[in-house]
């Protein structure tokens, strides 16, 4: 029997390559913890999944989020720059090709770091001032 192919259509499926949880259980969280939508779906503001609505992986904690979701959270001052899952300082591994959104994310993370450092310095200065008072009293 001879078969003549008249027409063909190709299909492909894709799936984000997600980090497994840090505890070696091999468990992969399928939902973004912030919007509770599948990583293969989009954040609440996007229409098309994939490169337009990427996933970002916390490099300290290996927690995944939709990039747009973690951006919205880190924009909040009250986030203190922490991962919503584990409250570690949120950092991420920069991919080779960078984009405007990733630069925004980096700026936010840097902003939180500056705030933290300023806060710490403030505390130290107060401590020094307190020490100085004591010296005066002793003199």
């Amino acid at each position: 029997m001879k078969v003549k192919i008249l027409e063909w259509k190709s299909f492909a499926t894709w799936h984000w390559d997600l980090a497994t949880s840090a505890d070696d259980s091999g468990y992969v969280e399928e939902l973004c913890g912030i919007c509770r939508v599948s990583f293969d779906g989009t954040c609440p503001n996007c229409k098309y999944p994939g490169d337009d609505c990427p996933i970002v992986l916390g490099s300290g904690c290996t927690h995944n989020f939709h990039l747009h979701c973690i951006l919205k959270w880190l924009e909040q001052e009250s986030s203190k720059g922490l991962c919503p899952m584990c409250r570690q300082i949120f950092t991420f591994k920069e991919p080779e090709q960078t984009s405007d959104v990733l630069i925004n994310l980096k700026t936010l993370i840097d902003g939180h770091r500056v705030m933290r450092e300023r806060f710490q310095q403030g505390n130290e200065q107060e401590f020094e001032a307190f020490g100085a008072d004591q010296d005066l009293q002793m003199a």
């Binding site: 913890g33 912030i34 509770r36 009250s78 919503p84 899952m85």
Partner: peptide, 9 residues
């Protein structure tokens, strides 16, 4: 309040 996380529902 200050310990809110967006992962809560």
């Amino acid at each position: 309040q200050n310990r809110w996380s967006p992962t809560y529902d």
